[in-house]
């Protein structure tokens, strides 16, 4: 399933830590995010796939595999 989302990058302390996208109503766990997105507080707009076939240690929300992104502000 492909989605578009807009929100802020956060780093959450589960296990050894995980990168997340906090959008308006949902927190997405970013699946192997590119290095440019690994920066707390970054506002971004992304297009990506929701990976329903994947389970993780963080369990903070749907797993989002980023395909395209646009940095709105850092």
């Amino acid at each position: 399933m492909t989605i578009e989302a807009e929100g802020t990058i956060t780093y959450q302390s589960f296990g050894l830590g995980v990168w997340a996208l906090t959008a308006n109503d949902t927190t997405y766990e970013l699946f192997e995010p590119p290095a440019e997105l690994q920066q707390e507080g970054l506002a971004i707009k992304v297009t990506g796939n929701i990976r329903d076939d994947i389970m993780t240690v963080a369990m903070i929300g749907p797993v989002l595999e980023v395909q395209n992104f646009e940095i709105l502000s850092s």
């Binding site: 076939d53 389970m55 993780t56 240690v57």
Partner: peptide
Amino acid sequence: VLGRSGSGTVSDI
């Protein structure tokens, strides 16, 4: 069943 990124597939699990 989970790789270096801490995630893995339902089939492996």
